[in-house]
Computed example of a mutant assay.
Amino acid sequence: MVTLAGEWYGDSGTFWAAAAVVATLIVGIPAAWAAVRAVTPKLRLEYELQSTTDLLGRHGSNGLAVTHNGAPLASPHVAYIVLTNDGRKDIVSSMFHNLDPLTIDLGGVPAIGVLDVKWSFVGSLPAVSIDAAGKINLAACHLPSKSKVEISVVLDSDVNQISLSPTLVDVKLRETATISESLNSRIHALVNALSAVIVLIAAVILDQFWK
């Protein structure tokens, strides 16, 4: 065992090749992690049309009726919208441009009224209202990181898409349905960074042993 150790340290080429590998790993792994963090925004709001419910069911009203201000609704539905601050930092009210509300458009289908608002964080419930165009307005507020706002609204039609107004400053808006695409981009960035590290390690080793 002593002889082997002597051969190891005596072979300067092998020793320095191993040292170069260690040094490359020390530099390369943090660089790979930094590359992944770079594609992960600190400020990001995810939104999702989670589901819709037909209040009269598929088989018709069966004598039941849903009215709003005394007027019957032909196709009453409830839409459930979820907003999640999935970023690494809080979204604060000053990030709402001119303190304008965040507007949620239900694909052109006007909402009639807010049925319920649920808040996953301890604190004042964010103010939610319906404007004259039937769009949902979330007033400027503080949305802590990883907090969630669940909004349910009544409308007189089914809906299958939503969009948000670009009211927030320096905050990335992303529909939850595209999360898998974002995850793929992160994995791709990590694979590319690690591949670069591996290529660099191989180059160092080959350079040392071929001398």
Score class of each variant (00 low, 15 high):
12 S>I: 12
75 S>F: 12
89 K>W: 11
202 A>Y: 11
161 Q>W: 08
119 W>H: 06
6 G>D: 14
209 F>M: 11
126 P>Q: 05
118 K>E: 10
208 Q>Y: 13
41 P>A: 06
182 S>Q: 10
179 I>T: 15
131 D>N: 15
85 N>K: 04
40 T>M: 11
134 G>N: 01
29 I>P: 07
66 V>A: 08
211 K>M: 13
165 S>N: 01
167 T>H: 05
48 E>I: 10
56 L>I: 05
207 D>W: 15
37 R>Y: 13
194 L>Y: 09
43 L>E: 08
13 G>W: 14
149 V>K: 01
50 Q>H: 09
11 D>W: 08
106 L>G: 01
104 I>Q: 00
186 R>W: 03
140 A>W: 00
77 H>P: 02
145 S>N: 10
191 V>C: 12
15 F>I: 13
209 F>I: 14
67 T>E: 08
204 V>S: 13
166 P>V: 01
172 K>V: 15
147 S>G: 07
61 S>E: 09
163 S>I: 03
121 F>V: 13
77 H>G: 04
12 S>E: 14
108 G>F: 05
165 S>G: 02
27 V>R: 11
147 S>A: 13
166 P>I: 01
9 Y>L: 15
169 V>H: 08
85 N>T: 07
160 N>G: 12
14 T>Q: 13
157 S>M: 07
107 G>Q: 03
44 R>F: 03
134 G>F: 00
136 I>K: 04
172 K>Q: 15
159 V>K: 02
204 V>N: 10
192 N>E: 11
11 D>K: 06
206 L>I: 14
15 F>V: 14
130 I>D: 00
112 I>E: 01
119 W>G: 03
64 L>K: 11
3 T>L: 11
109 V>Y: 00
116 D>N: 11
4 L>K: 14
101 P>E: 00
164 L>N: 02
117 V>E: 03
155 L>D: 00
49 L>C: 06
